[in-house]
Computed example of a mutant assay.
Amino acid sequence: MTTPNYLLAVALAAAGWSNHETSRRLNSRAADRGHPGIAIDHTRVGRWIRRGELPRPPVPELLAELLTEQLRRPYTPEGLGIAPTRNVVVPLDDREYETLTLNAAAVNMPVKNYAQALLRRALSQIPSPNTVASKEV
């Protein structure tokens, strides 16, 4: 993948972490959790952001955990764009596509990334079927 990972970039900026700080925290957490073979450096973090490369497990989970603690709101590897993706095709009519492209341009994001962010946000507002089922019992 060669598309920048804006989701990760924004989350790391919100945490106030540089690539060096991110790698330091990840290495520390990995060692604490029994993963001594993990050795992330700042250049690797940069590739996750600039090129959209995906870190190997357990790094996505560890990073989501660290950001959740730092920013005090839930983060997931999928929400940070650092988990394998599944392609979904959503047909849009001309008006919908025009609205999407105008809004993406207004926030200086590629249309694909903007659409992904919108869909993720909408999905995060919907209770999971397991939660709904457990409340009904």
Rank of each mutant, 00 (worst) to 15 (best):
H35V: 08
H35C: 07
H35S: 06
H35P: 07
G37L: 07
A39M: 02
A39W: 03
A39H: 06
A39N: 07
I40L: 13
I40D: 01
I40S: 04
I40F: 00
D41N: 15
D41M: 03
D41A: 06
H42F: 10
H42L: 11
H42E: 15
T43N: 12
T43P: 00
T43H: 12
R44P: 00
R44V: 15
R44T: 15
R44K: 12
R44W: 02
R44C: 11
R44E: 12
V45I: 14
V45Q: 09
G46Q: 12
G46H: 10
G46E: 07
R47H: 14
R47K: 06
R47T: 08
R47M: 01
W48Y: 13
W48L: 02
I49M: 03
I49N: 04
R50C: 01
R50H: 11
R51W: 10
R51H: 15
R51G: 00
R51P: 00
G52T: 12
G52S: 03
G52D: 08
E53A: 12
E53M: 09
E53P: 00
E53S: 13
E53G: 06
E53C: 03
L54Y: 06
L54N: 02
L54P: 01
L54T: 10
L54I: 15
P55T: 05
P55G: 02
P55F: 01
R56C: 04
R56K: 14
P57F: 14
P57K: 12
P58H: 08
P58S: 11
P58L: 07
V59P: 00
P60N: 10
P60W: 08
P60S: 11
E61W: 05
E61L: 08
L62A: 09
L63Q: 05
L63W: 07
L63M: 08
A64G: 02
A64P: 00
A64K: 06
A64T: 04
A64Q: 02
E65Q: 09
L66H: 03
L67A: 03
L67V: 09
L67D: 05
L67C: 03
T68I: 12
T68D: 12
T68Q: 09
E69V: 10
E69F: 03
E69M: 07
Q70F: 02
Q70L: 13
L71H: 03
L71K: 09
L71R: 04
L71S: 04
R72W: 08
R72Q: 15
R72A: 13
R72V: 07
R73L: 15
R73G: 02
R73M: 14
P74D: 05
P74R: 15
P74F: 02
Y75G: 00
Y75R: 09
Y75C: 01
Y75V: 05
Y75W: 04
T76N: 09
T76Q: 07
P77A: 10
P77C: 08
P77K: 13
P77T: 12
E78M: 01
E78Y: 00
E78R: 07
E78Q: 13
E78T: 05
E78H: 06
G79N: 10
G79V: 08
G79D: 04
G79M: 12
G79A: 12
L80T: 01
L80H: 07
L80N: 02
G81Y: 04
G81T: 08
G81Q: 08
